[in-house]
Design a protein around this nucleic acid. Sequence first.
DNA 1: AAACCTGATGTTATCGATAACATTTCGGCA
DNA 2: TGCCGAAATGTTATCGATAACATCAGGTTT
Lengths: 337, 337
Amino acid sequence: MDKISRSPAMTDVARLAGVSHQTVSRVLNDHPNVKEQTRIRVRAAIAELGYRPNRAARALVTGRSQLIGVVARNSTLYGPATMLSEFEQAAADAGFAVSVGSVRELDRSSMGAVVERHLDQRVAGLVVIANTASAVEALAEIPEDLPVVFIDGDPASGRPGVTVDQVAGARAATRHLLDSGHETVWHVSGPTDWFDSAGRIQGWRQTLEEAGREVPPLLSADWSAAEGYRTGQMLARMPEVTAIFTANDHLALGILRALSERGRRVPHDVALVGFDDVPEAAYFIPPLTTVRQAFGDVARAALGLLLGQMGDEAGTARQIVVPPQLVIRESAPSPAR
Amino acid sequence: MDKISRSPAMTDVARLAGVSHQTVSRVLNDHPNVKEQTRIRVRAAIAELGYRPNRAARALVTGRSQLIGVVARNSTLYGPATMLSEFEQAAADAGFAVSVGSVRELDRSSMGAVVERHLDQRVAGLVVIANTASAVEALAEIPEDLPVVFIDGDPASGRPGVTVDQVAGARAATRHLLDSGHETVWHVSGPTDWFDSAGRIQGWRQTLEEAGREVPPLLSADWSAAEGYRTGQMLARMPEVTAIFTANDHLALGILRALSERGRRVPHDVALVGFDDVPEAAYFIPPLTTVRQAFGDVARAALGLLLGQMGDEAGTARQIVVPPQLVIRESAPSPAR
DNA sequence: AAACCTGATGTTATCGATAACATTTCGGCA
DNA sequence: TGCCGAAATGTTATCGATAACATCAGGTTT
């Protein structure tokens, strides 16, 4: 690398400012015990040379980069996209870059490979969106001293993590439909190996049982409108089905279409509650009653927990549970309307 | 850092295998001129020690990390989320990690800050999703020797980039509606300072003018279902409006709701074409005719272009234009149905 | 047999930053 | 004025990898 075209390093700044390279480092890292006059001189030299720190050099010495690794399943859904976006913003505000590693399947091998890549980069911490038990298994290889936070992991685990209270969300949705006068509530779930799905199923089932209502057979699906349409075509054929709670808003959209095709009016004939509150939910026909997950809050809480681990190991091995919120719109209006 | 807990380095592998550290490097980087027997010995030592390469060390020496920086506006929309996801997958397959930097606004200051962060990391290349002219301005500070690819940039610029042919997509949508017997076509655009919006407006306007049809006033919006609903409330009040082309599917969803509220049947009274083909579009009521953008293709083409710049500077200063595809569904059926 | 070339491997230097330890300077107190 | 302690700054070492250059061994050709 030719001397003329080499980027200026700290030693160049030091020479120009007439100090040691260590003092330049002290100025850049806001060390105490540096005279203000010295700081000014160093900063002027930095500006004059257009010096840019090399994070790789710092990472090499400290053993930790200024990167946070995210491990997530490849998804274009609103929830994951929102969390990633909010997380990146919050991390940037805290001085970290975010490196994303995604997997096509939540299996041990795929996730293990992503974790390896992050470890090679000597990430300062990891955030793992671990929706299933098999995803969690993959993480056995993470060094014990590396800060890790789980999002949407197993609520019953002892690991540091942030989850939305899926059971409470499902209870609110189901309770709302029962309070509106429905005999029982049908549920279309997401993939049943996902912790989120399990929590929603549990909340739905508990609420029905506690109310002494019949628990209808579960319709299991994935997260797509296509699967909502498929299950909706079955539900629309059953006259006794007057209330449906779906595991997400896209499932609800598919069901809306199936009901429409069979002349089942919403909410007149069938009331419908979704889950997530994607921005479009308010513009479905009719606007969707749904359970809002505060994805942004989840992301920011996860970062807080991770930074806590990085700074002070005590008291951060905990789970933060973010409350969901029932948002009532026309697809399942309030009782006594 | 205590000698007992220090991760094994190349020198440790070398000692165990009885070779120099340089030979270990050669084995790991698939250099020619290493005996197979030596390779086997080194690999066994690597496995025994659980050696993990330190990417920071490599980045320091080479001046380039194995990271690709992405600069994008903070968005949870399907298009950007898909492109990011596909890009990350393709980059990982090529041996790169992806560091995401997002901005709340497409302005010079925000984008400049994100670029700075990437440059500090000594990224190997940049991918910039630069939807507006002001976003492009922010990138004047990028060193000339750093590989850069633009996505959704200015189609008229000479910079390496990948875009979808917005004009062609809009032409296809508008032509489809005219061919279905509509006198003219109304257009609800996205933000007009976006290149994508401008291309769609241009394609719509051109097609109408060439057909000798009246060009109705433009309704300008953002990308949300809420704005679709707002403009839809106006359009639903005009009996002469029989055909609408929207800048994206979410706008179309909002319009569907507004039309429904005023008893305007789709497609009987008003035909509707969206843009994007989000997965849910097929499950709107009715299923949406739309223009599909092959977001995955865009992402993979962008990576190809970037890798080309990294490997061989010649012949890669070009624009790849990905064709869109009209997807006909019930909201605007084919003519002669 | 000697010289040359190529394959295989090793030694030395370097990247740019922080850690660790050392030295100097300054201010306050006796 | 001298001593001590703290502030301020400097020197040396290190991180773990690749680049650059050097050396050795074996085979082929003259």
